[in-house]
Design a protein around this nucleic acid. Structure first.
Lengths: 204, 204
DNA sequence: GTCTATAATGAGATAGAC
DNA sequence: GTCTATCTCATTATAGAC
């Protein structure tokens, strides 16, 4: 193996760990499985990272920092109404989940793990703060193309949006019922449109 | 230890396992921790249950069979409107989560575990079918005291309700933000009321 | 810095006395 | 049926040669 700085090895290990967790679950993400995925020897692991727990912290940091919803913004301007925009955004999100279900499961497993681990206990709050910020960004992005104003505080609506996305994901992971999930999205889109004032007069 | 039939030991072990998982997490629910909680010897475990995996199946069966929302029905008739009924029901549900957060976390952990385990892969679907049935029951129970009809299919609305409850729980477990959760409930209650036709004429 | 070899621990499961 | 004692294995982590 060529000489690679320990810091680079560390991020490579975190990425490999995420791959393993997405594919086989958190319980299967042993140090051996992780180094095998990263193509390193077992000893390299502890040279680069003090412990497995430390690496898991890195993994959580990694997923918290991920972008995520940037791809959804262009969809919003293409929609003819708020209802349609909400429908498209949620559908696109669910499609993303369907494309790689293991990755979303990995998120939930990492969150639950962090909640149970003293040193990581506060990371889920940051994770959800990030989710909420992304949803706020999305709601703001929807205002201009549709000339609308939200009738309720955007942070509150953002949290509802994240709530729906999470719940949608959990139920779909459990029963894989595409049609039922699509109907949930229809209703959720109705609900979100309820909170929008459309047809706001364009200022001269 | 007195002589207890193996079948009784088995359910006792499943209950003990659920206690351990709620308190310390699934990863900490080793056979040793479970028998300690149940007050049995380690050997009794494998006399009553073939393997740890088999017991976890029992635990999932256990939580799937649980009642859950029966306590929410009386709330519905006490409310003055559909919006109020939804608000009270969701608030009561979240209070229940707050009372024993570990138990709800245990649910999520067991679901994720089942999804990753070949033999248990289909159990989450049953679990969510049960959740949805409970929500349907709840929505039906709301019709008579409020003289209302739902403007959308009840199963669809039920799934949305479960979606909101799940998402609400996940976010609260992560950030423990009571006020934000309460605001999410307010918006969700508005949304649910949107799907109700209230003041339906009482037939003579 | 990187490897092989090996501790040290804790897990699930079992043997065999009583 | 129930117990103590033990087996076997996989895990994290480390020692020490190169």
């Amino acid at each position: 193996m060529p000489r690679i700085p320990a810091t680079e090895r560390r991020v490579a290990l975190a990425r490999a760990a995420l791959v393993v967790i997405a594919r086989d679950g958190l319980a299967a993400a042993t140090t051996r499985a992780i180094v095998a995925e990263a193509g390193m020897s077992l000893a390299s692991f502890h040279y680069a990272v003090p412990s497995r727990e430390e690496l898991l912290r890195d993994v959580v940091d990694l997923v918290v920092a991920e972008e995520g919803t940037a791809a959804l913004v262009p969809l919003l301007s293409r929609a003819g109404s708020v209802r349609e925009a909400a429908r498209l955004a949620l559908t696109a999100y669910l499609d993303h989940v369907k494309q790689d279900p293991g990755h979303e499961q990995a998120m939930f497993e990492l969150t639950q793990h962090a909640l149970r681990t003293p040193g990581l206990r506060d990371l889920p709050a940051e994770q959800y703060e990030r989710y909420h910020a992304l949803a706020i960004h999305l709601l703001n992005a929807a205002t201009s193309p549709h000339h609308l104003e939200w009738r309720v505080p955007i942070p509150d609506l953002a949290r509802l949006l994240v709530t729906v996305a999470d719940g949608l994901t959990l139920a779909w992971l459990a029963d894989r019922d595409d049609a039922a999930a699509a109907r949930t999205i229809e209703l959720a889109a109705d609900a979100i449109a309820l909170f929008a004032d459309e047809h706001v007069a364009v200022s001269a």
